[in-house]
Amino acid sequence: MQYFLNGLPIGAIYAVVALSYSLIYTSSGVLNWSQGDMVMLGAYIGFTLTQVFHWSFTPALLASMVVVGLVGVIVQRLILKPLRERKAPPINVVIATLGVAIITRNIALAIWGPDAQVFPSPVGDKPLQLSMISVTHQDILVVCVGILVMAILQYFLKYTKEGKALRAVAQDRRAAVLMGVDTQKSDAVAFAASAALGASAGILVAPIFFVTFNMGAGIGLKGFVAAVIGGLGSIPGSIAGGFFLGTLESLAGGQISSGYRDAITFALLILVLWLKPSGLFITKSRQKV
């Protein structure tokens, strides 16, 4: 029970990062390897705003999501759009996003230096003892904000005009163009929303780990694994994959050994790719011809 609870906050963070991969993948067909570094940027901007400028948590979270969202748009305009117009093969786009990751990492290194920064929890990390189990305020905050962010994304996709357009592009790009949807704009919206999701994950994860310029590699990879386990491109699948991976790691770390935690994660990734590459939580609905 305790391991399960411990897994929830990290699971929520994985879920948010997994969602950010899926959102871009499903709507623009791009596997964006700079997603982890958007998490890192979000953490650094949150760190700077709260620790250097003494902002409180909520405005810092929102500001960080907005700024990193704009970075997402810049990435789309500078990298994806020109490649699309030249009809570059998908692998070139993937490699270009790897380039974005490296550049972002080094910009962060130049601005914030190589030392790991401590991001104290905005709500303190005193544990809350409830008979047999204990949770920290930080854990509760992470789970709540994580769920809130995911709920807002759902609302955006289901009930707003731009959100619906994004889904339309994801499901049938050609038909969406015939409806008059600007696919460049919907790509930009997808990149912005994904980057903002990453930033929120960054601020949430920062008090759990340290903030470093290369933290994006680890969390980005875990988020990607969660997305693949749950079903890359599927929103409910990604959320389920995130929580599943979080609790699994917590169980594996507690019951077996924390040294094997990552090994178990990647073994699971290989198993899923081998046995059910569409994702564990996806039942593919076939389209009628």
């Binding site: 619906k164 889904r167 339309a168 038909a175």
Partner: peptide
């Protein structure tokens, strides 16, 4: 589309994971 010419593509191309209502709404995008 903006000057009032609509095309119904071969093979229908409805948005499969959107409801009938949402599909119709997309037509008026």
């Amino acid at each position: 589309v903006r000057i009032g010419i609509a095309m119904i593509p071969e093979g229908r191309h409805v948005f499969p994971q959107m409801t009938v209502r949402e599909n119709l709404e997309m037509g008026a995008y």
